[in-house]
Design a protein around this nucleic acid. Structure first.
Lengths: 139, 139
DNA sequence: GTAATCCCTAGTAAATTGATAGGATTAATA
DNA sequence: TATTAATCCTATCAATTTACTAGGGATTAC
């Protein structure tokens, strides 16, 4: 299941991208528009800022803004920040590989074999989808 | 992340399929061979039996066996039993659809749009993979 | 009848999730 | 400079899920 954190994060990014203007967007505005608990959203946007997707401006009239064009923000990056590894088991993770302690031979492991395929097909979606794709009306 | 339940379940099914013989396999044998806590595995195999994937024989020399040929056991079925819905959000689930309570219009929802693509690509893998594929050495 | 096996229900510790609380810091503006 | 409005940061917490464990009942081979 997708965590609420990821769901809220994606909705917030889409909101900012759709808005389009170059003034920063406040957390409160997004929270109200997307029905997201404000304090929770605060922490989510903070992590997106720390990861370099968002920039922020403090103080009055502050808020968050995209640091790149929506068409340059890949879902691989966003999903890894919000949801963590894309692979369903660490032994097939590209970025966070760890062997299973109970598996004597990955080459013989049926779970490994299946999860590599799932990982690749999911990656294929995320690599070919940008925030611009999510924000636009088309497909 | 894939739950241990699913991981253990897949390993157990693969073990039974690879064994090939028509005598039932005991939980203890699988647990020992695959390093799975026996009592936990018991409950997993029980749920696979209740779902019709496995049959069982009680009493001495009892155990579990496949009710279909490995080539006829699709991953869609196995994963739904072990892991639950394949979709990452209920609003794109084919078998367990439920609308999100915070989403006024699915057609405009970026999460919905993205997760439909992920669901379809994952389904494509599971629909084209059988237990026989996991059990064989090839690919 | 005894041993070996599946069947079933409960319970439980640890981790994760989805928040909330409370305030420190920063910046615009009057 | 004082006020206000925003981000930033840490800590905490209840509910849920996960990954088991315990204990025994039911069934069957021998």
């Amino acid at each position: 299941m997708l965590s609420k954190k990821t769901k809220y994060g994606l909705k917030a990014l889409t909101y900012i991208a759709r808005r389009g203007e170059d003034t920063p967007v406040q957390v409160g505005e997004i929270a109200k528009a997307e029905f997201i608990p404000q304090k929770f959203l605060e922490s989510i946007l903070l992590s997106l800022r720390k990861s370099g997707i968002l920039g922020s401006k403090k103080g009055k009239h502050g808020g968050y803004y995209l640091r790149k064009e929506p068409s340059e923000i890949l879902m691989t990056e966003v999903m890894r920040i919000l949801e963590g590894p894309i692979a369903m088991v660490s032994c097939v993770s590209l970025n966070y590989y760890e062997p299973c302690d109970d598996c004597p031979d990955e080459a013989l492991c049926s779970v490994n074999k299946l999860m590599i395929q799932v990982r690749d097909s999911t990656l294929n979606v995320f690599r070919n989808t940008t925030l611009a794709d999510l924000s636009n009306g088309n497909q």
